[in-house]
Design a binder for these strands. Structure first.
Lengths: 230, 230
DNA sequence: TAGTATAGTGTCCAATCGACACTTTGTCAA
DNA sequence: TTGACAAAGTGTCGATTGGACACTATACTA
């Protein structure tokens, strides 16, 4: 009944769906596979888990190898493990999703199995390798959902940002325009933003005030159960 | 740089946090380990993933082996994989959480590595084996959260149920009393319940109307984006 | 038929949210 | 210097939602 057939060979991959807003468009970083299987196809960046390496540590390592950057948000997404999802054998993919702040989104020279890396507008994705299409869809759904109901949104924007920049990031992810007054009311009403003394000019017009996310205020509210943990 | 040290040996366990409301108390099903490591300690039911077995299929199998029942809700929770979490070697635990409807919560004779199985009030848990304490906490947090913001709650109750039964299930999970009128207004306002002609007597008093969850109505609303997918 | 135990029902107030348009400020060019 | 431009910044109203709050209705039993 509960005889455990030990699996012949099992490997674990850690894949990271990396999102950033670039040119007001929500984008994902993909890598072009340089080796079989799916050679020449685009895929979500990732690699095999190493011995003595934690899952999140592996995700951070992959992210850093791929972008040279540190995520402003990183969270486990789900694990995909259908038999047959990888022609090389049984591979579980523990997936993460990461946000990078707008701005630092250069594409470095890729290493390893990836022939090249590039940002793609999420509306114009190529066919992806493995079951990465499913993984991407799931990640996007989760990002959109969390953006509306949590404070992850601040991960899409630099440390200091104008409210217009923040709004544009929201609009890029959700794919629809927001009302400026309602957006500001809501986001300031959260009580987790601190206005700085500095300003930023966007083009030739009136400068905008820079704000920053206040971790202290956020913690205080979270302790009182005001904000969503997920 | 991206040289892949292949892991010597990796196994994947699938563990299932099984919740049910019993005697108006939120309970979890635990098994007592009959073999090392952690022999004699209580643990979340689970087992190793088999070859050619999908993750969710493995979770269903474990659930069925442990309870003989089918879950009314089953969803992947997260994957835990810290090196050293299992003294036998590197083991990833892909965790699920499941709900059983109130009523059918008999404890069958356990098989395999489990010496015995028992329901525990979530407020009075023993020390658990491995990192199962963390897993449990995470599952409980997720359950509470989803109960308030999604329709999972109907998984805690039989196919046909009275509104009082449903309310008691909510109260058991959230650990606080709800106002009867507000609860009924909210739950009926979802538009996913259908009243049946039948009634049920609870004790000696006036019978209550039986309702059922209407998958059709739920789908219609979900298609319009009214209800939360998560 | 009186008692009892649970089912079932409606109002008020506060907070939230969406829709909606004009004034302010800084810069540049005429 | 001032007029034009471009983006920043700001408030109200109405609808909906959600929490607090207490009494009547019904089925049965003694």
């Amino acid at each position: 009944m509960s005889y455990n057939r030990r699996m012949a060979s099992l490997r674990a991959a850690v894949d990271v769906v990396i999102f950033a807003v670039r040119e007001r468009r929500l984008s994902v970083l993909l890598v072009k596979r340089g080796v079989p299987p799916f050679r020449g196809r685009w895929a979500i960046p990732g690699g095999f888990l190493r011995e003595d390496e934690g899952l999140e540590a592996a995700a951070r390592r992959e992210l850093n190898e791929e972008t040279g950057l540190t995520a402003s948000f990183l969270e486990q997404l789900a694990t995909f493990g259908a038999p047959g999802r990888d022609p090389r054998g049984r591979v579980l993919s523990v997936c993460y999703f990461a946000l990078l702040p707008a701005g630092n989104t250069a594409v470095p020279a890729p290493g390893g199995d990836a022939a090249q890396a590039a940002w793609f507008d999420v509306r114009k994705l190529p066919d992806l390798a493995f079951d990465h299409g499913d993984i991407f869809e799931y990640a996007l759904q989760r990002l959109r959902w969390k953006l509306e109901w949590t404070t992850v949104g601040f991960g899409l924007v630099p440390k200091r940002f104008t409210l217009t920049e923040l709004q544009q990031a929201f609009e890029a992810v959700l794919g629809r325009a927001a009302d400026k007054r309602n957006f500001r009311r809501k986001v300031l009403g959260l009580g987790v933003l601190a206005a700085t003394r500095e300003q930023k000019r966007e083009g030739l017009a009136r400068p905008a005030r820079l704000y920053e996310f206040s971790a202290q205020r956020f913690e205080k509210l979270r302790e009182r159960g005001v904000l969503f943990p997920f």
